[in-house]
């Protein structure tokens, strides 16, 4: 179950990164490994500012991938929690079927507008819970809906 969640977070997160910060795609495998390793208690190694023949102590560039991964993980957990109520159980299965990497033939019928609205609401709620601004939360929620409805970017 945990592996499934990790796989879902990985694939959904990649789609979100591809849509929102495509320049971070080369870094994605390492960042997601770091993210999932940190969640299991394994910290990443800090880099040195004074590396020999390096450039020097520069400012850190803001990465969207960790935020997206955090959001995706929270979203999925929230969605799973909602699945405990019968009314959304079908949504969960539908969403799984439409995850990136799944064959179109196995994707099943598209999500209904109601289901999408539910997905969007959960996404926006979780984004807001992560202290993301309202507008950014809306963007993330819309992106999540796009991942589940549109063909994969990668």
């Amino acid at each position: 179950m945990v592996d499934e969640t990790a796989e879902i977070v990985r694939s959904v997160g990649f789609e979100l990164v591809s849509r929102l910060a495509p320049e971070e795609r080369p870094l994605y495998p390492s960042l997601v490994s770091q993210f999932q390793g940190a969640r299991r208690g394994r910290g990443g190694k800090a880099s040195s500012d004074d590396q020999l023949l390096g450039f020097g102590a520069a400012e850190a560039v803001t990465m969207l991938t960790p935020v997206i991964l955090n959001f995706t993980s929270s979203f999925w957990q929230a969605l799973v929690a909602e699945a405990a109520r019968n009314s959304v159980h079908g949504v969960l299965e539908c969403v799984k079927a439409h995850l990136p990497g799944r064959h179109e033939a196995a994707a099943g019928p598209p999500l209904t507008p109601g289901q999408l609205q539910l997905v969007r609401a959960v996404a926006e709620r979780e984004a807001r819970r992560l202290d993301i601004s309202e507008s950014q939360a809306g963007l993330l929620a819309d992106a999540m809906v796009g991942v589940l409805t549109a063909p994969p970017v990668s």
């Binding site: 770091q34 880099s47 500012d49 390096g54 560039v61 803001t62």
Partner: peptide, 14 residues
């Protein structure tokens, strides 16, 4: 090469 876990704007030669 890529040093993905280094989020600073940097590079080094070796």
């Amino acid at each position: 090469l890529l040093q993905p876990l280094n989020t600073r704007l940097s590079a080094f030669a070796f």
